[in-house]
Simulated assay, not measured.
Amino acid sequence: MPFGFFKKKKKEEDNTPHYDPSNIRITDIRVGFFLEYNAKTWEVAEEYEYDWGDNEFSYSFLLRSADEEVYLSLENEGELEIVMTDKIRLVKLGEDIDDEIADNGRPPKTITYEGVKYYRDNESPGYYRNTATTPRNESVEMITWDYYDDDEEKAIFIEQFGERDFEAYIGEYVEEYEFSNIIPASEPPATV
């Protein structure tokens, strides 16, 4: 359910889908859509909204295939950026990382994971909610930290909810052309 790195998307006035049915793009997906990625068919199972304040929102999506779950996040500030991530256990990023956050108010400046060094880049406080199950006025306060490798092609994201509740994600940037056969849901989901 990442991420703070996808900010500044202006919220539309309503939740009605606004896309051209003859030219559906990855930026049009919502819960119930299907798409092809990495030689698999995925269903958009959940949608998460991040409210960064000043009418700035971002979204990520849980995608499910027959045997896997991944998260897709989109940012479009003049150029579309797409990140696919997997959820990982925080302890894999360092045995004492939760204590460091508690003691210092943030995680370390660098993290080495599977032989790759990542550098902390952003710290973003905001509010999070699952769009299908949580009303907007019940969003949860959170903070996220973004890390990137030297080439800025791979990323790690750490999210904190409350004092000691953390989630971590590892991912990489992908291109829009890697997605195909995007099919909308037969009925739009109810929004809260």
Rank of each mutant, 00 (worst) to 15 (best):
D67H: 00
E46K: 07
V174T: 05
Y169R: 00
P2N: 06
V116Y: 06
S22P: 02
I156H: 11
G126H: 03
M84S: 01
R30P: 03
D146C: 06
G32C: 12
F33N: 03
N15G: 11
L35M: 01
L72I: 02
S65Q: 00
I183E: 15
I111S: 08
F157S: 11
E12V: 11
G53L: 02
E159F: 08
F5A: 14
T41C: 00
D149H: 07
T131H: 01
L90N: 02
A39V: 04
E68W: 00
N181I: 06
D151Y: 13
N181H: 12
E114K: 12
S60D: 11
D67S: 00
G4D: 08
E36R: 14
G94C: 01
N122W: 12
Y113I: 00
D20C: 06
G32A: 12
D165K: 00
H18E: 14
K11Y: 13
P108F: 04
G105L: 04
S60P: 03
L90M: 04
S73L: 11
F5C: 15
R129Q: 07
V83L: 09
G162H: 11
L80A: 06
K154F: 08
N137D: 15
W145F: 09
M142C: 07
V44Y: 03
E13F: 13
E187S: 11
G126I: 05
K8R: 11
F3Q: 11
E95M: 09
K92P: 06
E69S: 05
I156Y: 13
F157K: 01
K9Y: 11
F57H: 14
E114V: 13
K7R: 10
S124K: 02
T41I: 00
E68N: 00
T112F: 09
P188D: 15
E172N: 13
R89Y: 08
E12N: 14
F34P: 04
D149Y: 12
N38T: 04
P188C: 10
Y48N: 07
S124N: 09
R25E: 14
I143S: 15
A132Q: 07
F3M: 12
E56G: 07
G162Y: 10
D54W: 00
R106V: 14
K109W: 13
F57C: 15
E77A: 08
E175W: 11
T133C: 08
E123S: 10
P135W: 04
Y59E: 10
E176T: 02
T131N: 01
F157M: 07
P107I: 03
Y118M: 03
R25F: 13
